[in-house]
């Protein structure tokens, strides 16, 4: 199937601002799904609220646009309800880590086979540029005009600590890498999370003198380095990209199916 066949073209052009990175992430998701050869009816997108959550409306899968922060909770019901489906949650940093932080860590702990694609633009875009739990210390937003005085999360470390079995980080600059990571994440059995650093020139860029979208993407190129690279070794201040966790652990829905089987065996044995 061609990539464009996965898109609901009638809703284009999309609502994102000029220069926004989210369209690149959406493009990456579609290409990853295309490379996996998934049927449109096999895929469910469950998103929350925010700029990133609008991805679900533009793609021709089973799509759910739910409540702010709750995408993974709805997704859990869908996945357990119909285990054969590929359930993917496109999320934002505020959506996934602030209001939805609890669901994120519990989905990771359960190791339920859902893929979270977190578009991290370090700010709340939809509401006009307020700081998020991913706004780095000292950076500005409309609710912290002198700079934020809180520490920010490291999404990958958080997910790892919570028990996610696949964690990766990339940026909108590294599109080929992103496609591969999303592909691997979807194919992974268990909870998988891909953090994609995405530029918000309209709010984050403007408030923090980040320049244009191109300047911000250049920063992604120059300020990050692949896991295990010499560059990263020499410059520990660089942000690490790559598949940071990839391990096998019992997946929730499979374990649940085993539980059903155990009950049925008990019944058969007692009969």
């Amino acid at each position: 199937m061609a990539v464009k066949d996965y898109i609901r073209q009638r809703f284009f052009p999309q609502i994102w601002c000029a220069g926004c990175g989210h369209g690149i992430v959406m493009g990456g998701m579609v290409r990853a799904i295309e490379q996996l050869g998934l049927e449109k009816n096999e895929v469910v997108l469950v998103s929350g609220i925010g700029c990133s959550s609008r991805v679900s409306g533009y793609l021709d899968f089973h799509t759910m646009h739910t409540l702010h922060g709750r995408a993974l909770a709805f997704a859990t019901g869908v996945k357990l309800g119909m285990p054969h489906l590929k359930v993917i949650s496109p999320m934002g940093d505020g959506d996934a880590l602030a209001i939805g932080g609890n669901h994120l860590i519990h989905a990771a702990r359960r190791n339920i086979d859902i893929t979270a694609i977190i578009m991290n633009n370090n700010i709340y875009g939809m509401t006009g540029g307020q700081t998020s739990p991913l706004t780095p210390f000292g950076k500005k937003g409309s609710t912290a005009v002198l700079g934020v005085i809180e520490q920010c999360f490291d999404i990958a470390e958080l997910a790892k600590g919570a028990g996610a079995t696949f964690v990766a980080r990339t940026t909108t600059y590294h599109v080929k890498e992103m496609i591969k990571m999303i592909r691997d994440a979807i194919a992974h059995k268990g909870f998988s999370l891909v953090e994609v650093m995405s530029q918000c020139p309209t709010y984050y860029g403007r408030k923090n003198r980040g320049g244009t979208a191109v300047d911000m993407m250049k920063e992604f190129k120059e300020g990050t380095a692949p896991k295990g690279s010499k560059k990263l070794e020499e410059q520990p201040g660089f942000i690490e990209r790559g598949i940071l966790v990839n391990e096998a652990r019992p997946e929730y829905v499979s374990s649940y199916m085993d539980l059903i089987e155990e009950y049925q065996n008990q019944r058969d044995n007692s009969a």
């Binding site: 469950v46 759910m64 739910t66 409540l67 709750r70 993974l72 909770a73 709805f74 997704a75 859990t76 019901g77 869908v78 996945k79 357990l80 309800g81 119909m82 609890n102 669901h103 519990h106």
Partner: peptide
Amino acid sequence: ISSICAIIGASLTGL
């Protein structure tokens, strides 16, 4: 919160 969200998701799958 997640309990009711999960049952909405499950109900949509036909359960």
